[in-house]
């Protein structure tokens, strides 16, 4: 069973009652499976938060439907298994960490005993141990983000939805959140998070969806989205054999020569298949060695998620 099932979701907004309707989400369809980390990727204003709000019934869709655990969004049973961290969370700043978690735990239907047995464990998990009696008004942005995470996982949900969870965190904090996501996945939980920080997605996500201007551009496994094909190969030769240099100059490549090394950047030809490119590379390497060259490094450069993202979003911009 899919944990999240979104089909043909569209949303129209009206800024004021006298302004015309504007479509901010266009026929978005995707699924999120059990025990995976799903990254919802897109630039600011792409519709990520709008989709999340629909999933949590904070807003209602204009068209389409969304299901959580096979039930329509808004279903109390489904909501019981969800933990949610909103973007830029603001919480009641007059509460202490404990009071804040007590409040959210009771809204989840947890008993007082359950809440109090979970609080120390959860605070430890988000690195907030020792803040039990501190008021939230004294927290930094990063601490607020962590306490927000704590309320999201307090009731041990099966699905954790995080809207821009890395916002306001320093590199250490970001790593800790990534580790927490991985930890949740290990426990069999599903993590759905939105972000525009590509490196985070590449590091932890099983699958991603790319959204721009309310359109879903692509959805799939990270390594499927990133083309398996090599963009180019960096080849560094040690030593200066004149024959090698003459040979390399005959090739259709980028060449630069320094005192000790020869740098070669080999691009695949247009319409050249991956296998043909691989064969051509083998020939270059073999021939170079025969001509007295010694290879220092070979590094094939593949497409990154950033390349995919920029390409897709850029393509979309040009269409719009």
């Amino acid at each position: 069973m899919n944990v999240i099932d979104v089909e043909g979701l569209s949303k129209d907004y009206r800024q004021h009652f006298w302004t015309p309707l504007r479509r901010v989400l266009h026929n978005v369809t995707f699924v999120v499976r059990e025990a995976e980390i799903f990254g919802f990727l897109g630039p600011n204003g792409s519709g990520k938060s709008t989709t999340i709000k629909i999933l949590l019934e904070i807003i209602f869709p204009t068209e389409g439907r969304a299901k959580l655990f096979g039930k329509d969004v808004g279903d109390s049973d489904a909501k019981r298994h969800i933990g949610f961290l909103p973007e830029n969370p603001y919480f009641y700043d007059y509460l202490t960490s404990t009071q804040f978690l007590e409040f959210h735990g009771s809204l989840q239907g947890m008993s007082r005993d359950q809440i109090h047995s979970r609080i120390p464990k959860i605070l430890e998990q988000v690195g907030m141990r020792g803040t039990e009696h501190m008021r939230l008004r004294n927290f930094s942005k990063g601490m607020l983000q962590r306490i927000g995470l704590a309320q999201a996982i307090l009731h041990d949900p099966k699905l954790v939805i995080l809207d821009e969870p890395m916002t306001g965190l320093d590199p250490v904090g970001r790593k800790e959140v990534r580790d927490l996501m991985l930890q949740l996945r290990e426990q069999g939980k599903t993590v759905f998070f939105s972000t525009h920080i590509l490196s985070d997605v590449e590091m932890v996500c099983d699958r991603v969806a790319i959204l721009n201007k309310g359109h879903l551009l692509s959805c799939g496994k990270v390594d499927e989205l990133i083309a398996a094909d090599i963009r180019y190969v960096d080849l560094v030769w040690g030593g200066h054999s004149p024959k090698l240099l003459d040979y390399l100059r005959t090739l259709d490549t980028k060449l630069s020569v320094s005192a000790e090394s020869i740098y070669l950047k080999v691009f695949p030809h247009a319409k050249e298949s991956g296998k043909d490119f691989e064969r051509r590379m083998n020939e270059i390497v073999q021939k170079g060695i025969e001509l007295g060259g010694a290879i220092q490094t070979i590094s094939p450069k593949k497409e990154t998620l950033e390349d995919v993202f920029v390409k897709q979003v850029g393509h979309m911009e040009s269409r719009v």
């Binding site: 949590l56 109390s76 909501k79 909103p86 603001y90 009641y92 989840q108 939805i161």
Partner: peptide, 14 residues
């Protein structure tokens, strides 16, 4: 305004 309603509405509450 402060969007505290987001985390409340996401709970199993009508």
């Amino acid at each position: 305004e402060k969007r505290t309603i987001y985390s409340i509405v996401s709970k199993p509450i009508r």
